[in-house]
Amino acid sequence: MRILVIEDDLETSAFLTKALKESGHVAEAKHDGESGLNAAREGTYDVLVVDRMLPKQDGLSLIATLRAENVVTPVLILSALGEVDDRIKGLRAGGDDYLTKPYSYSELLARVEVLARRIKPEEVQMQYAIADLTLDRLAHKVTRAGETILLQPREYRLLEYLMKYAGQVVTRTMLLENVWDYHFDPQTNVIDVHISRLRSKIDKNFDTPLLHTIRGAGYMISDATS
């Protein structure tokens, strides 16, 4: 996918474009708000990665301008300001996700890929299926190989989120944010334990594991055995 990185720090933007290319994406970089805005207007990008503080035009006003012009390309905001208040402001300006510096590349990549696959409301599926695992969103029912699996409400939402982005890496922070709606960083591996409980319900009695741990990044639901 095509990604535009608008970041004034040359080293950071070089690192990001290089890493994104290595991950199989097409990445370009702009180093100030003005040229970034022009590129975002004209180009056809799947995701914009926008630093909050930029020379010439600041990140938030850049996003607001794009949104006012009906450019709906998903935006991931990068910011050194990480307080609740800053996050709210960023999302209100039209950002789709917010990542606080310093971040790990795997976190950024996972978020960019999920954003690019952003599902429009009209495309919302009522049923997710991966291999023999299905999740029926109307009936709130999960089955594997025809067998009904009973899940706690939170386990259901966890699985729902993972299956929505099946085949993509989802980080622990993303799960905490999207399934629990908390933005802090727990000192204990709370998410891992929830995942292992979920795994014991959907994978334990079956031959092919579907819920995979991606080392150093997060989790992924996929039928590929890699």
């Binding site: 905490l176 908390y182 709370v190 334990v193």
Partner: peptide, 13 residues
């Protein structure tokens, strides 16, 4: 309650 629910598994662990 949300936090309790988030932490319960890890506490049991």
């Amino acid at each position: 309650r949300d936090i309790a629910e988030l932490y319960e598994p890890v506490i049991e662990e």
